[in-house]
């Protein structure tokens, strides 16, 4: 039989944490939004558009954070064969993909007014796009198998390979960019960040990270439920078969009784 991660243990640990974590997330994002939209100065060069930074940078951070998390889960699944590691990696992928996509979209919305273009083949943008492809590949691979456990294992291997590849891609893309483009005017990190901007930035990064853990816990529960359902369905099928057998027996008995009665 498959070794299941013990759902009861996971629930016992996360049940008391979850409401607090959700509250902290809401609080962090709410105060972060207040600072980001009202209480932070406008940039002398970029004007109000600098406010996009407060979601763009945290989204980029989350995209990378989630990938590192997936790779660590992949390594843990490879070394200790702990089923929960596979489930965590699987649950992380959609969150990471969402944030990576958000990073690209908000970056575009920031780039249009500032650089005059939605998209530049800049090293950072390109490597972020490749990261999104890696996420999509992982999600497609994990869902391509009839047996979800086989999918998760293949996915863990892929996450690990991708993690090795990400620095290489980053490095090659950096080089590719400097070869083809003259010293870039494009600067994603903008001017050195003022303390008054650090506050909303830090709040939003923390808030997004907490949001990730809330959704992660929920998604792991979802995954555990689905595994349980599959196990029940399998045992149910066996039961049904044995039920049919016993029904036949019953009919047989009934037939005997009917014969015996008269």
């Amino acid at each position: 039989m498959h070794r299941f991660a013990k759902p009861s243990v996971f629930l016992k640990f996360t049940d008391p944490v979850l409401p607090w974590l959700a509250g902290v997330t809401a609080l962090l994002i709410a105060t972060g939004l207040y600072f980001a939209l009202f209480a932070s100065p406008i940039d002398y060069q970029q004007g109000d558009t600098v406010r996009i930074m407060y979601i763009h940078v945290p989204a980029a951070w989350m995209g990378l954070f989630c990938y590192v998390g997936m790779a660590i889960c992949g390594a843990m699944s490879l070394i200790w064969k702990h089923p929960l590691a596979d489930i965590c990696a699987r649950a992380t992928a959609p969150i990471g993909a969402t944030f990576t996509a958000l990073c690209l979209i908000t970056g575009s919305l920031w780039g249009e007014p500032m650089w005059g273009t939605w998209w530049v083949w800049d090293a950072r943008l390109t490597s972020m796009l490749i990261l999104l492809f890696l996420y999509l590949g992982y999600i497609a691979l994990v869902n391509a198998f009839d047996d979800p456990e086989r999918g998760s294992k293949a996915g863990s291997a892929l996450a690990l390979i991708g993690a090795v590849n990400v620095p290489i891609v980053k490095f090659s893309v950096d080089w590719w960019n400097t070869l083809h483009q003259p010293a870039s005017i494009v600067r994603m990190d903008g001017p050195s960040v003022d303390p008054s901007m650090q506050v909303p930035l830090a709040l939003m990064i923390l808030g997004f990270t907490c949001y990730y853990f809330v959704v992660l816990i929920l998604r792991v529960r979802l995954e555990l439920n689905e595994r349980r359902i599959r196990a029940l369905q399998l045992s149910g099928m066996f039961d049904q078969r044995s039920d049919q057998d016993s029904n036949n027996e019953q009919n047989y008995d009934a037939g005997h009784n009917a014969e015996a009665k008269p």
Binding site: L37, R51, I52, L102, P113
Partner: peptide, 18 residues
């Protein structure tokens, strides 16, 4: 937002929706 409202609110809205 200093003339950039659609970009800023657009990106915040997309993030919130997602």
């Amino acid at each position: 937002m200093g003339g950039y409202g659609s970009y800023i609110w657009g990106s915040y809205a997309i993030t919130a929706i997602a």
